[in-house]
């Protein structure tokens, strides 16, 4: 058994996998671990010497797919990729197609990773910093987000497209990224001060968005299961509207809502409009 560690880094894994493939090493003979102890063992005597005799050709499309699937955090993260690579390199292309058991798992991981990038684009919430602080930190917007897969580095470019010259940062409990209006600064370990700025930003204008959220909701159509399906509960904690959700569901369920209007509007005085001539 060959024990390896690639420090959850795709380029390292690819180099290791290329050597293994060159020596014709069966996926059952190799294991990528994720702990520091296995790391010590692995570097010492894990990988065979030299590139090996077998020259494998694989479609370029496969490499792109492996790179995407490598961002998936989960069991057998790197072993699975090698098994797919090994089978395709030996002529079995079904290993990368949905339908095949292994191919389906590969495609499922790709889908999860893509979906998580989409969640980042959707559910990141920036807080604008007040002018004085913005000048001091050279930052306009800060956000804290918790992605389930390693997508922050590749998926954050989206915000540079959206936000023009604004300077922003996104902190997570693992990595972090900062943009100064021109360049990205990605850190595999998020600096603690970034995290602190993002989590403790003061937001005096937060009420506008909460007001909009309350009023665009139609209580006559309350359907919290559909909400949960599209916006999983794990994101609510970092969304300003998160704490409102159970309250709005509760109000709608109490039977006070027989029509779509929010209670606050119903309580205000109304105004009928008279038309003199038409």
């Amino acid at each position: 058994m060959i024990a390896l560690d690639c420090d959850d880094d795709f380029a390292t894994w690819r180099d290791q996998a290329r050597v293994l493939l060159g020596h014709g090493i069966d996926p059952a003979q190799v294991n990528w671990g994720q702990g520091p102890i296995q790391d010590l063992l692995a570097v010492a005597d894990g990988l065979p010497d030299g590139p090996g005799p077998f020259r494998a050709k694989v479609p370029a499309e496969l490499l792109a797919q492996l790179q995407l699937a490598a961002r998936y955090r989960g069991e057998q993260r790197w072993n699975l990729l090698y098994e797919v690579l090994w089978r395709v390199a030996h002529g079995d292309r079904t290993a990368m197609l949905a339908g095949d058991r292994l191919g389906s798992e590969l495609q499922r991981r790709i889908k999860q990773v893509t979906r998580e990038a989409h969640h980042l684009h959707a559910f990141v919430r920036f807080v604008p910093l007040p002018t004085a602080v913005a000048e001091q930190l050279q930052l306009d917007l800060v956000a804290f987000h918790e992605p389930a897969h390693d997508i922050l580095e590749t998926a954050s470019g989206h915000f540079a497209e959206r936000l023009g010259r604004q300077r922003w940062l996104i902190a997570t409990s693992r990595d972090g990224i900062r943009y100064d209006g021109k360049d990205f600064d990605y850190r595999r370990q998020c600096p603690p001060e970034w995290r602190q700025w993002a989590e403790q930003a003061d937001d005096p204008d937060a009420d506008l968005w909460l007001t909009y959220y309350r009023h665009t909701f139609n209580p006559a159509r309350v359907n919290p299961d559909a909400l949960r399906m599209h916006m999983p509960g794990r994101f609510w904690r970092h969304l300003p509207e998160g704490p409102l959700i159970p309250r709005l569901v509760g109000l709608a369920r109490q039977g006070k809502q027989r029509d779509g209007q929010a209670q606050e509007v119903a309580e205000q005085g109304g105004k009928r409009i008279s038309v003199v001539t038409r």
Binding site: H118, H121, N218, R221, P224, A226, H230, E241
Partner: peptide, 12 residues
């Protein structure tokens, strides 16, 4: 992009 969902299950 659906940035949020209200409790009626509709996208914002």
């Amino acid at each position: 992009i659906c940035h949020s969902y209200t409790p009626d299950g509709r996208c914002v």
